[in-house]
């Protein structure tokens, strides 16, 4: 039983990590808290539904790639057209992205319909390890998510683009003086962020139910993780995601699922009181301003 619970907590942790790392990037590089981030997660799942179930029987892996690219492109366009006006302006950015959240969600209801949907599992079945049934699909989700997160870490550390993102994150003016195209970097970062959220939604589509309001819960988790891990810290978000995943799953199992989210918020509140910078809080663009 413990193995099953642990695996499930890793699934939740991996999905939340994908969500929260994108949110951390947006906050620390653009100085924007993106309340519409959950809608990007929802878009990822909805695209999978339309491509794999409703209008076509597309290969799931290909549909995932399309979902990530499409939502990533949407993010890039959104930044170029709208978000750029709110870089570094926390409150205005919050208002603007709450507006986007409402627009995207309300736009999706008539397209998607009011009834929750699901997509067939691309990898059905379970494997037995030491007498425990482990879902193949969930193992794959954890594997892909961890691979992508590590890939992101490598990308940010080793590539020219990643270094530019870090430069903007650390000191925007110094980066500008060094010739970094700030607007371009911000748009790419926002695109990466929304693409990661879409990947989380696409991976979870065959496991959870899909509906236009599904992004809100994922966003709640991401905020808890960011508070816990530390605003602006990718590593903090990564570690916090898996801790919150464990906490949520084991609370649900032994105390009741109705308490699981309440306890997650409780942890966030305690962290805010005891260590406001979180586990590994890094200074973001807004904090430095």
């Amino acid at each position: 039983m413990i193995e099953q619970l642990a695996l499930n907590s890793f699934v939740l942790g991996a999905i939340v990590a994908l969500m929260s790392i994108g949110l951390v990037l947006t906050f620390s590089v653009l100085g924007v808290i993106n309340y519409a981030h959950g809608e990007m997660y929802m878009f990822g799942a909805v695209i999978i539904f339309f491509l794999c179930s409703r209008y076509a029987a597309m290969d799931y892996a290909l549909a995932c790639v399309i979902a990530v690219l499409a939502v990533g492109l949407l993010g890039w366009i959104l930044d170029k057209v709208l978000i750029v006006r709110f870089h570094g302006n926390l409150m205005a950015g919050v208002i603007a992205t709450i507006g986007l959240l409402m627009i995207f969600q309300n736009m999706m209801w008539p397209i998607f319909g009011p009834i929750p949907k699901s997509v067939p599992s691309p990898l059905p079945g379970v494997i037995q390890i030491l007498g425990t049934s482990l879902s193949i699909e969930r193992i794959i989700v954890v594997g892909i998510a961890v691979f992508v997160i590590l890939g992101m870490a490598w990308f940010i550390k080793n590539t020219r683009m990643g270094k530019a993102i870090r430069a903007v994150q650390q000191d925007i003016e110094a980066a500008r003086v060094q010739g970094v195209n700030i607007e371009h970097i911000c748009a790419v970062t926002f695109g990466i962020s929304t693409g990661l959220a879409a990947l989380a939604g696409a991976l979870i589509a065959p496991i959870y139910i899909i509906e236009p309001a599904m992004g809100f819960l994922a966003l709640e988790f991401a905020f808890i993780v960011i508070i816990f891990g530390g605003m602006g810290s990718i590593m903090g978000a990564f570690i916090a995601s898996f801790i919150i995943g464990l906490q949520y799953t084991f609370t649900a199992a032994f105390w009741g699922v109705e308490w699981a989210m309440a306890m997650s918020f409780g942890i966030a509140m305690i962290v805010l009181l005891v260590r406001p910078r979180g586990l590994m809080g890094a200074s973001g663009r807004v904090e430095e301003a």
Binding site: N8, M214, T251, A253, V257
Partner: peptide, 9 residues
């Protein structure tokens, strides 16, 4: 959205 934690025990 997820009930593994609830169902397992």
């Amino acid at each position: 959205p997820d009930f593994y934690g609830t169902l397992t025990p």
